[in-house]
Amino acid sequence: MNQKKEEFLAYLQKQKEACLAQARALTEEDRKDESGVYKAKANIYDIFAMLYRGAEKGAAGDEKKLEQVFLKNAETIPQNWNKAYERAKQHQDAARILLEEAKLAAAEDIMVNYKQIIGI
């Protein structure tokens, strides 16, 4: 199990670095606004890593509890982004749509990979 946990955290770190590299490349190409979206996306991988580590600490070795707490938080937190996305769509707020969509896409990608790595 420890190996899977490490694998999941390594995946989050790798994705974060990939987003930051993409953000740097976009800045160098004079696409600063799009670069900002990748920075926000990188932040999401960081948030989920913190969530996972927090759940791991709280679970104190109880694998079932770790999974329950992490899945609950991973479901709850993007709900606000989803609400913000719907509100932005309703008000045709193009900047917010772009940002919230990127955050939600990252959250979805994380959950697909979590289930694959941990084996749910």
């Binding site: 606004d33 799009e34 979206v37 193009a94 900047a95 749509i97 772009l98 969509e101």
Partner: peptide
């Protein structure tokens, strides 16, 4: 498309 919409708005 959302990226294009964003730039067009600007």
């Amino acid at each position: 498309a959302p990226t294009i919409s964003f730039h067009l708005k600007k």
